[in-house]
Write a protein that binds this DNA or RNA. Sequence first.
DNA 1: ACTTTCAGTGTACAACTGTACGCTAGTTTA
DNA 2: TAAACTAGCGTACAGTTGTACACTGAAAGT
Lengths: 207, 207
Amino acid sequence: MSGIRAQQKEKTRRQLIDAALGQLSAERSFSSLSLREVAKEAGLAPTSFYRHFTDMDELGLTLVDEAGLTLRQLMRQARQRIENGGSVIKISVLTFMEFIESNGNIFRLLLRERSGTSSAFRAAVSREIRYFTLELCDYLQQANALEADVAFLQANAAVTIVFSAGADALDIDKKEREQLAIATIHQLRFIARGAAALNGRLELTKL
Amino acid sequence: MSGIRAQQKEKTRRQLIDAALGQLSAERSFSSLSLREVAKEAGLAPTSFYRHFTDMDELGLTLVDEAGLTLRQLMRQARQRIENGGSVIKISVLTFMEFIESNGNIFRLLLRERSGTSSAFRAAVSREIRYFTLELCDYLQQANALEADVAFLQANAAVTIVFSAGADALDIDKKEREQLAIATIHQLRFIARGAAALNGRLELTKL
DNA sequence: ACTTTCAGTGTACAACTGTACGCTAGTTTA
DNA sequence: TAAACTAGCGTACAGTTGTACACTGAAAGT
């Protein structure tokens, strides 16, 4: 019952996942990877791939889940730093920028598949971003005494701004990245100010 | 000098462009199109493609330019509607949503190539979005008497929010799209309020 | 009228793709 | 211990890809 077999299987499954992640880069998207390439990188015969995933799509969805996990890890890290005091916005942005610096390819995966050609991928990425947004929403609602609707709009806008800044950060050098961080922080402050000012004064259903 | 030859060439060049645009959809990205497919759709032999573009990349960059053109057209349309009176934010968002409804695939092209694997594509899309942003920036600066820096930050944030909403709009039905428009309008108001409140009170260079 | 240019064609090829199929050897189960 | 299972392999095949090359016929240049 030790499961020497299942254990080995899990191990090569990981090799496939890591092989795929390892091939991602600025110049290489997941959808441009072939089953054969991934199998080769993992040290497997092409046909062995099927013992673990029916499809490259199935592997891709696994990667998106993995990315979501990393994202939530990031969130926890930020929260921890916030507890030690300091501006919430500033710390969040800086933490996010650090995340991108060391997890660029995972972030790229999310960015790309968010607008990719597979609706399953798009849904999976949306889900991960929604988790992210809802956690922030809870925090805002509690910390700033906002209406639920206003808190959600603020959280949603903030995540959008930060993700967009993250995407921009991927293509620039460290010095510019600092400028970008400053700009992003100001934009988040705009949003926070506006949300606070308009809290309780919104017509939320009429166009 | 009538150029019967050049005229014909231009015509089939357009056929190639239109063939490529016509194949784009939610399920089909530009990078997934093959040279042969595009040539076939245009009614050409594969090798004739080279008479017009050296590469699929070159065709792609042409498409991005085309998309930018459409985007600026949209801007003009919005401005015209604003002159006839009404909330600037509301009209802008509604115009943008209409644009996406009738130009979904062009918008998808921009969205995808913005985070694609070709740095030339990314740069081209960035450029188009920057034009868009700068025009809005000018407008804001003049209409709301904002500092240049603040106006830019607001314009940039607004464009980010609207583009993101546009991306979301691509995957939902008409009823949900109206809700999304309302939410987006509120978010833009947050930003406008915040920018106005913080105008002249920003530390723009220090982290 | 003669030559040059060149948009478009058809053939050909090597590289690569996903995957069907049958096999092997080690693990698990009975 | 015997039988069943299965992760991984190798071969094979049909389909698609980009593009090199030699060609044609009509337009443009002289």
